[in-house]
Amino acid sequence: MIYSGGDDILAILPKSKTIETYRDIISEFKISTISGGIVFAHYKIPLSYVLQILRENEKKQRTKVKMVLHIIYKTFSSSGCFVKNIYLE
């Protein structure tokens, strides 16, 4: 746990325990519903960058809809895909 201020939580966990812990947290909280974000990140990515991604996405999705969980998987190498030019139109 990095901080826990009542309804406001930031925690770092092993990958295999993250979803399970998030589920426990939302089921425990009875005052209101909870929305949040999870980032699975490679250990070599700077933590400040991972936090920035997490905060930006959590903020973005909160304005749209409540009671949701936004999940991002951030790999060490950049990921992308190839699209043939003919499919661009």
Binding site: I34, F40, A41, Y43, V50, R55, E58, R62
Partner: peptide, 8 residues
């Protein structure tokens, strides 16, 4: 990989 949770 590790997981980072933010909830509100």
């Amino acid at each position: 990989y590790y997981g980072l949770i933010m909830a509100d």
